[in-house]
Design a binder for these strands. Structure first.
Length: 345
DNA sequence: AATACGATCAACCGCATTCGT
DNA sequence: CACGAATGCGGTTGATCGTAT
């Protein structure tokens, strides 16, 4: 149980490895295999601890190590796996031949994490950050617009910014409520049957009251029949237009977030991949605009054109939610082919 | 040319887990 | 089963390099 004592031993060399040490270690392992790492340094004539030797071998000297920059495909794979596994670098590394966990970890910390943060995504959850601070740069940029400076007082601007920030938070929370099941519970057979979140989403839609043409959703779906062609799309459209955030979904595009209600009080969120790319793009993580992360052409699509979620008014009979296409509509192909994925699932 | 600063990545540290007796 | 040793893993550090001032 206790800690390995090898690092506590004194007189052992630390720091960067010399070419001579590398040669000794490589020759020894090629001839004898590493065997016991603890015994190896003495046998190989190295004044290092076994741990240091193991690390040097696995992270640097191993003959199958792939060097050089990560390819866009590898980057995509890391994003996919990280959205599912989190900081399980060694597990992620098993899916990237020739790459070490250390290398992947470094790449994540120095490149991918920053990218996600800059785009307003939480690098741990891969979801849009709902805190105001993550949107601060946008808000500041907005506030600095000369037009606004001239047209409004600072007080008015502050009120407007607050309102917009609140709308963003609501919209993003709505995304959360309408999202596919969390990575930790990828069993899609569960679907989104939770009634409370459904109602919450419904109420949120209503609360986002920037509705065009005076079309307002009923606050109580049980009392008032909802028109067949409802204005939820308009609601989101209006919110979208009112918020100058580039990472929000483009309502004109094929992967837009289209919401409608029918006479059965049912909200249908079609193509509910919100921020993920669709159609020609591969949605590797349900919340990421991966196409903008990677400059290269993305892999073939995995999500079918229609990923449908139905949100009901809370009644048992109509509290159905489904993803057409099953798990493959959400999870990257590479994961579905992977025994590890099924183990996790 | 000198210095400051940021990015990168190899290596270390310490905790957790697995293995062997 | 209990214990200690060995190994694995993830977070962090620090040396080095490139770029900006």
């Amino acid at each position: 149980m206790g800690r390995s004592p090898c690092c506590d031993e004194t007189g052992l060399k630390k720091g960067p490895w010399t070419a001579e040490e590398d040669e000794k270690l490589t020759k020894y392992i090629q001839k004898h295999g590493h065997g016991s790492w603890r015994a190896l340094p003495k046998l190989a004539g190295l004044n290092r601890c076994g741990k240091s030797c193991r690390l040097r071998w696995t992270n640097y000297l191993r003959p199958d190590i792939k060097r050089g920059k990560f390819s866009p495909e590898e980057e995509q794979t890391i994003l996919n796996l990280h959205s599912v596994l989190g900081n399980k670098w060694s597990t992620i590394a098993t899916h990237l031949p020739g790459r070490t966990d250390n290398e992947i970890k470094n790449f994540w910390n120095t490149h991918l994490k920053k990218k996600l943060i800059q785009m307003g995504f939480d690098p741990m959850t891969h979801r849009p950050r709902t805190d105001i601070f993550s949107s601060l740069p946008h808000l500041i940029a907005l506030a600095n617009l000369k037009e606004l400076m001239e047209q409004n007082s600072w007080e008015k601007q502050a009120v407007r910014l607050q309102t917009e920030a609140a709308q963003i938070a609501k919209l993003q929370y709505l995304q959360y409520l309408l999202q596919p099941p969390a990575a930790s519970m990828p069993s899609l057979s569960n679907s989104l049957s939770a009634t409370i979140p459904d109602m919450e989403a419904y109420n949120l839609l209503n609360s986002l009251s920037v509705v065009k043409d005076s079309q307002v959703l009923s606050t109580n779906p049980m009392e008032t029949p909802i028109p067949s062609s409802i204005m939820a799309t308009n609601t989101l459209q209006a919110v979208h237009e009112s918020i100058p955030f580039s990472h929000l979904p483009d309502l004109e595009s094929p992967c837009s977030f289209q919401t409608s209600m029918n006479k059965d009080h049912m909200v249908q969120a079609s193509n509910l991949t919100m921020l993920c790319s669709q159609g020609e793009n591969s949605p590797t993580s349900p919340w990421l605009p991966h196409s903008s992360l990677s400059p290269s052409p993305p892999p073939p699509p995995v999500i079918p054109p229609m990923t449908e979620v139905s949100i009901t008014n809370g009644g048992d009979a109509c509290s159905t939610s489904s993803y057409e296409g099953g798990p493959s509509s959400i999870w990257p192909e590479l994961l579905l082919d992977d025994p590890l994925f099924h183990e996790i699932a």
